[in-house]
């Protein structure tokens, strides 16, 4: 423990040469931070979901959830996002087995599935918009677009992170523990999926 470094946000390449970094809990700083971040994200999405729950019934006669939802379509895109969690976990476990080639493939597949989901959301939004549901149409529309839009942005950021990670792995630009980096992105991605599990039930399946 005498040999100590403070390089947590960029684990050093030479970390192995000097042995384990000192940490009181024996855990990785990055992972602690990521879980804290996810914990705080619960309150962010909780607030948006609550706003939606409060306002879901406040809309004009024919432009409410019951008239607009296309459950089979949304179920399909939910399924896609759920499966991306599987591919993500496969990427993480490949990375832990030091099989970077497979990890990269699974990451790419995850990003593809994520993109499919986002594309579905864009399609859904345009459909709603063409049916007359603008962002400012009603309380329901504002809170619906804000909630799902925030989620969509999270997915998009996740896709960018996945693709960047693939590129950086290929170019050997990832500093530090590669498996841990993959795991960090994985945690974020799973969280985004978990939020959608809530949204799918609370927003789509339970009628207004």
């Amino acid at each position: 423990m005498a040999d100590t470094a403070v390089l947590a946000d960029a684990p050093a390449d030479h970390g192995d040469a000097h042995g384990e970094h000192h940490s009181s809990t024996g855990l990785s700083n990055n992972k602690l931070a990521m879980w804290l971040f996810l914990g705080s994200e619960c309150l962010l999405f909780g607030g948006l979901i609550s706003t939606y729950m409060l306002y879901r019934g406040r809309h004009s006669e024919n432009l409410g959830p019951d008239q607009l939802w296309d459950i089979p379509f949304t179920s399909a895109s939910s399924f896609v996002l759920l499966m991306s969690s599987l591919t993500m976990v496969l990427a993480v476990s490949s990375a832990h087995r030091r099989n970077l080639r497979n990890a990269k493939i699974w990451l790419a597949v995850t990003a593809t599935l994520g993109s499919l989901f986002v594309a579905g959301q864009v399609y859904e939004f345009t459909t709603f918009y063409r049916e007359g549901l603008g962002f400012t149409t009603s309380l329901f529309s504002s809170s619906f677009y804000t909630l799902t839009g925030f989620h969509g942005v999270h997915v998009t950021v996740g896709i960018i992170m996945l693709l960047s990670l693939v590129a950086m792995l290929s170019k050997q630009r990832v500093h530090g523990d590669k498996a841990e980096t993959v795991e960090m992105v994985g945690l974020y991605w799973h969280f985004v999926d978990v939020v959608w599990i809530l949204i799918f039930t609370l927003v789509y399946l339970i009628p207004a």
Partner: peptide
Amino acid sequence: VVMFFMHLKFDNKIFSWLFYAGLFLAV
């Protein structure tokens, strides 16, 4: 998903504490 895909079940309890603190506070 949280337990298995995100490994919370296999990981150190402290991660669970951090996440569930936020989750239950939010709920």
